[in-house]
Write a protein that binds this DNA or RNA. Structure first.
Lengths: 186, 186
DNA sequence: TTTTAACAGGTTGATCTTGACATGTCGCGA
DNA sequence: TCGCGACATGTCAAGATCAACCTGTTAAAA
């Protein structure tokens, strides 16, 4: 039930199409709640049927512009007030670190190097997003800025952590009888 | 396809029951890949049928002890080598921050305070886990220590970030015409 | 002018995940 | 000895999610 609230939030800030939304779910909002267009289009139909959004215009190529209705904003508010947040994180890339011991040290180091590259890329994206956009225009974007800031710190943190993990692995953590990971070096 | 690899990893380190596993998925491994027992039991049956784990013993109350087979470890290794990591993060609690603008400032501050409490609790859990367990016993636990360390940094980061966000909201970020979130204070 | 890539909207089937239901065991305290 | 709570294993239906498929449009490069 989170996808619909993400859509209600985005369409409250700025009217846009399903195609635009899917791009938001590929970047900014997708950083905390990923979704494919195959999930978005049916949800837009449902939200329209429930009166939480309306189609306010159309463009070339059958493009449909949607906007959150006052009832939609009220539904979003009710969700924020009346339901408990789900604090569970799902992150496959980190689950894999649990399994790093199956690889020999050299492969594990290559693995971590690939991860690091990915995290550095995300960090750059975040910093670019912060620099490029006007975050003061609307209350919705000012709230989004809070989440983006978390993203920036999150990826900064990941890069630092993976450098630490790399040191650990290089020191032989993944070998039987290697050094204890509890000894935090560096 | 990640649940099975989490199970293979845990059962490679220490033979245990579905019940034990579900507790691992409620805490340590659940921090990056949550799973309910209703998902775990059928998966154990499938893994057994495929020869990736075996039942090596039983205990009171019909308790079944499983262990990863050499083929299971090989499957885990193949997964780590041959498939690309999914770097997508799913985190509902942060999606909600996007929607914080629907609440008046006082409610938003209360909302953040509740989140902070939750994150501080998680951080304590992490620190306790690091202190309590013997992380040098096996390569599997030494790899797990790497992820736990990320968890510690992650929740430390969240607490710091939410303090920053609280300042922003207190300064009027969620009100139209409020201060720009791009001005990083404190 | 042709072809390519991005735009745009959609469906479908398979798989994953959740929450609720269901059953029974064992140890401990009242 | 009675009842409770933790232990322990499962199933099932509903809903969420994803990958793949499908159709058609527009702009710009070749």
């Amino acid at each position: 039930m989170s996808l619909r609230h993400g859509l209600l939030d985005l369409l409250a800030g700025e009217p846009m199409s399903g195609y635009d939304l899917s791009r938001y779910f590929a970047v900014s909002m997708g950083n905390v709640w990923p979704a494919q267009h195959s999930q978005i289009y049916p949800e837009l139909a449902r939200l329209t049927a429930e009166g939480l959004i309306t189609q306010t215009g159309e463009g070339p190529r059958g493009r449909k512009i949607y906007q959150t209705t006052p009832q939609g904003i009220e539904a979003l508010r009710a969700w924020m007030r009346d339901s408990k947040p789900d604090y569970q994180v799902r992150y496959e890339a980190l689950l894999r670190i649990f399994c790093l011991w199956v690889l020999p040290t050299d492969e594990a180091l290559a693995y971590l190097a690939r991860d690091r590259k990915e995290y550095a890329r995300h960090l750059e994206e975040m910093e670019q997003a912060i620099a490029e956009k006007d975050w003061g225009a609307h209350t919705t974007t000012r709230a989004a800025r809070l989440t983006i800031e978390f993203g920036r710190r999150f990826y900064t943190n990941l890069v630092e952590w993976i450098d630490w993990a790399t040191e650990q692995v290089a020191a032989g953590t993944l070998q039987p009888g290697g050094p204890l990971p509890s000894v935090t070096g560096g």
